[in-house]
Simulated scan of single mutants.
Amino acid sequence: MKPYQQIAIDECGEPLVPIPPEHFAFEIPHPYQKLGAPYDNSKADSPYYLRQGVVDSLIAAQTHLQQNDPKWKILIFDAYRPIEVQQFMVDYTFNQIALAQGCEFPVPEDKRQVIIEHVYQFWAVPSLDRATPPPHSTGAALDITLVDENNRRLDMGSPIDEISERSYPDYFANSNHPREQQYHRHRQILKNAMINAGFQQHPNEWWHFCLGDQMWAWLTNQNNSGSQLIAQYGRY
């Protein structure tokens, strides 16, 4: 169990709604659908859904971004993720790491344990327990980056979903290299827009933001001594 999963959930019942295409850029075709992830039985007809309140705050973040950088947009890489898709991506990531390490299949138990612990540093456990839902399965978490006026991604120094320390939000913060300083500036611009709209950022992933779920409540409580927030979004 991760620390944020100890946060209580008082589900508010807010619906999942589509992210309005006029405000944002999207990763199309969706990266996990390309891999064969099972969205067929999802409660939404695409991955690009969030809770209504989260969508409202995301629009506020886009507005804040364009006050300083009017030609830039938030690109939605991933949003609502059913449990079945979470399980698929955990399995896929495990297999990719095992292949890269030259493991034989089935992977021996000792190596399996090491790899799965590495996977779970970045991917949430696909838990069916309603008290410990994966963040994306609540409709309150999303993976994003920035694009310029030509719809080209800004370079953040590492790709979304990379399992390495380069994914940590402040990995390039103390670099003296001009290019790496630019990576950090881009990450900070994205973070500032999202934090200004009420989101919290995953401690290990520059691209992951949340609002109203267990991780959001836990991070908010950590940042504000004495705060006792609970989650308003559980598994959808």
Results as ranks from 00 to 15, higher is better:
T93S: 15
A60W: 01
T93A: 15
S175Y: 08
Q113W: 03
P31L: 07
P203M: 08
P108I: 08
Q6V: 02
D56G: 06
A61V: 08
C210T: 13
A197H: 00
G198D: 04
I9F: 07
Y233A: 01
H30K: 10
Q222H: 14
L142I: 14
N150W: 11
N196H: 06
Y49H: 13
T63N: 15
K73N: 14
Q188M: 10
Q113G: 05
Q66F: 01
A141R: 07
D45P: 12
Q101D: 14
A173W: 06
L35C: 11
S46K: 05
M215H: 01
I19C: 00
A193Y: 03
K43G: 11
D213Q: 04
A25T: 03
S137M: 02
A131K: 03
E109P: 00
D56P: 03
G139Y: 09
W123C: 03
G226S: 12
G102R: 12
R187Y: 05
R112D: 06
I160E: 12
H30P: 09
P3W: 07
W72K: 06
I74N: 07
E14M: 05
A124I: 04
P38K: 09
A193Q: 06
Y4G: 03
F122D: 06
Q201S: 07
S127E: 08
H186K: 05
M89T: 06
Q96C: 15
Q228W: 10
V114M: 07
H118F: 12
R112H: 14
P159Q: 14
D91S: 15
V114Q: 13
D155S: 14
P126W: 07
T93C: 15
D143K: 00
M194P: 02
P169D: 05
D129A: 04
F105K: 06
K111I: 04
N95F: 04
Q113C: 03
I28N: 11
Y92G: 08
A231H: 03
Y32D: 07
C210F: 02
Y39S: 08
R187S: 02
N192Q: 01
M194H: 07
Y171M: 08
T220N: 01
P106I: 08
Q214R: 00
P70L: 03
Q232M: 07
N150M: 14
Y171K: 06
K2G: 06
A8V: 09
P31V: 11
H64G: 01
W216F: 11
Q96N: 15
Y49L: 08
V90K: 02
S137P: 09
L35T: 06
Q62C: 08
